[in-house]
């Protein structure tokens, strides 16, 4: 879309009455002012300051001085950092796959007609609307090595051996992923449901006339039509999962022996509890460039199809 064409259109609209607020550009900028003010003060400043911290040897209560990339260098040889990095990627990748798959399934189901539909839709949203610090505590109680109801059910009804969910390195990370997936599915499900409802039923009717199977309909109609919302939800969720703090902090707080640390909890441990805020800032910003490129790429791809 040529900028020149837009400009001409805009000028055409102005017409003879030149009221400043009827001109697109001034009005456009003016309407952005509240947003820019809020985000500028409460997001941009702390963020820029955070970037600055990551290149200083600042400690809590001491602004330190510029040390270049030393913090990043320092963390490169930190085994826990490397573990946290790997955990963050695993945690995000695995939960995203499950949330995506199960969320899609949930949306397809919710799009069917069945009794008490509105109630079921609202009920399935519950994991997403409950304060996550409290639901994670409940999960901690459900995974408790002594009182786990999950183990009780497994033992008494299914005759399976007990699992020390949070107490071994492999199961603790899995537990984190289970809780994250449980909490995240509803948002995927509802967003996809919204997408499904925009697909005109005629498309399916036409496909059925052509003899397409349900799976073919799903592949040929549903998925392509869902693509825009799929990409955006995926993007949003990936970013939020990368930065997830409350859940890993409350459920395991890095135990057993730092095996379940993710970047956010490791940054918190070093930067807040240990006071090395410069290093903490470096840890929490390490994914920023990578994520920015991915997000920019996806958004550009999305817009160009628009």
């Amino acid at each position: 879309m040529g900028a020149a064409v837009r400009g001409l259109e805009a000028r055409g609209l102005m017409g003879p009455r030149v009221r400043i607020l009827d001109r697109e550009a001034p009005l456009g900028y003016l309407l952005l002012v509240p947003l820019l003010l809020l985000l500028g003060l409460f997001l941009a400043y702390p963020f820029l300051f955070g970037i600055w911290l990551s290149v200083t040897n600042a400690q809590i209560g001491d602004n330190g001085h510029f040390v270049g990339a030393a913090n990043y260098q320092y963390e490169r040889s930190d085994t826990v950092f490397i573990q946290s990095f790997a955990n963050t990627i695993t945690y995000t990748a695995v939960t995203t796959v499950f949330k995506l798959g199960l969320g899609l399934l949930m949306a397809l189901l919710l799009n069917q007609v069945f009794p008490a539909q509105r109630f079921v839709r609202a009920a399935l949203l519950l994991p997403w609307i409950i304060p996550s610090v409290l639901s994670t505590l409940a999960w901690r109680w459900m995974f408790d090595p002594t009182f786990s109801v999950v183990n009780w059910v497994a033992l008494h009804y299914l005759h399976l051996p007990s699992v020390n969910w949070l107490g071994t390195t492999s199961t603790a990370l899995v537990s984190l992923m289970i809780v994250n997936t449980w909490r995240g599915i509803p948002f995927y499900g509802i967003s996809f449901l919204a997408g499904l409802q925009t697909i005109p039923t005629e498309l399916y009717e036409a496909a059925r006339v052509d003899g397409a199977t349900r799976f073919q309909q799903f592949r040929q109609i549903t998925l392509p039509m869902l693509r825009p919302i799929l990409v955006v939800v995926l993007l949003l969720s990936t970013i939020l999962t990368f930065g997830d703090f409350t859940l890993p902090y409350v459920l395991t707080n890095c135990a057993p022996y730092n095996s379940t640390c993710v970047l956010s909890t490791w940054a918190f441990q070093i930067g807040v509890n240990g006071g090395y805020i410069g290093i903490g800032a470096a840890i929490s910003l390490v994914l920023f460039p990578l994520l920015s490129i991915i997000v920019a790429g996806v958004l550009i791809g999305l817009r160009s199809r628009d």
Binding site: A3, Y29, L39, I60, L287, L299, R303
Partner: peptide, 28 residues
């Protein structure tokens, strides 16, 4: 509305989600 920079600002707003909240509460 059409004006210079609208698209860039649109992206910019979305990208703010990349700002990690864990440590930013300190400068905030």
């Amino acid at each position: 509305l059409r004006y210079k920079g609208a698209t860039a600002i649109g992206w910019g707003v979305f990208i703010t989600y990349l700002v990690p909240p864990t440590l930013l509460f300190l400068p905030l």
